[in-house]
Design a protein around this nucleic acid. Structure first.
Lengths: 152, 152
DNA sequence: AACAATTATATTGTGCGCAATCGATTTGCG
DNA sequence: CGCAAATCGATTGCGCACAATATAATTGTT
């Protein structure tokens, strides 16, 4: 039985950080769920709406690039959102390989409701100051970039 | 059309933090995948092994409490791990409602291999100093606690 | 002892998330 | 021009993640 040494601590810290990220993501999801239920959206669907609210008429590829998701995830997700009449999916005329995703009137309209409900509740649930939020956000983005780089 | 005000920034920061956590979790998963493939494990399965390596003979409930997962997730996951001969699931004699999860010889043995492969690669992929790891870990755990408290 | 409430696990159904594969279109190179 | 390579999206299959529900065992109360 190998004994524990202090040298193991930094090795375990990496794993602990990953689990902290993983479990915090789940905790966030549990906070979002009742809020998003009122909008009829799941969290990944809400992310797609956030992207489209910023700028309409994107291809699946472009949405995927912003959310770090691929077509295997997005195609069925977008189809469900199309069935909910939140958006339309149409083949591009210039490049028939691409599918353009655009908001419906209903999809656009949902923005104001979402804005009133979601961000205030989330901010409150974090119990964080603006400085804390900005600090954590910045550090996570940097970490994510390094992890993505490590995968190549 | 309501104009953007500086007052919106803190509201959006909460959402941005959530997405940072969400996308960093995925990035971690992409780093872990090729490593865990060599062990024949998925990341949630690896988490279960980490818990069992610390102390064997736990109930499903106890494993769930440590990983923030419920039986709907754990039962099929543990069954797959049982099929891989990593662990056994037996009804407790004292309380027939409980299922005791114990490592097999194979499951215990996997620990040394995992220790050699996973933590060094993860630590390297984060590109973080020990201080950064500890800082982020601590802040995420605090955030997770506040989020869990917000859900009640 | 009988029965209601609680607890532990299992089951079902829905929705991601991603690897692998496929078909169709477009691009690029000789 | 003609064909190989690359690109985009859809499909399939597997494994979480969780809500809702079901089942069985235990505990508590009278």
């Amino acid at each position: 039985m190998p004994k524990k040494t202090t040298a193991d601590v930094p090795l375990q810290l990496g794993s602990q950080l990953c689990f902290a990220v993983y479990s915090t993501a789940h905790a966030f999801n549990r906070v979002y769920k009742p809020l998003l239920d009122r909008l009829g959206l799941t969290y990944p669907q809400y992310l797609v709406m956030l992207v489209l609210w910023e700028g309409d008429g994107l291809t699946v590829k472009e949405i995927g690039a912003r959310l770090f998701l691929d077509s295997g995830t997005l195609t069925p997700l977008l189809k469900r959102m199309e069935a909910l009449h939140l958006l339309t999916r149409t083949r591009s005329a210039e490049d028939e390989r691409q599918v353009l995703v655009a908001l419906t009137g209903q999809g656009s309209a949902l923005r104001e409701k979402a804005k009133a409900i979601v961000p205030p509740a989330i901010l409150d649930a974090t119990g964080c100051s603006i400085a804390e939020l900005a600090d954590l956000h910045g550090k996570l983005v940097k970490l994510r970039e390094r992890l993505e780089a490590a995968v190549e």
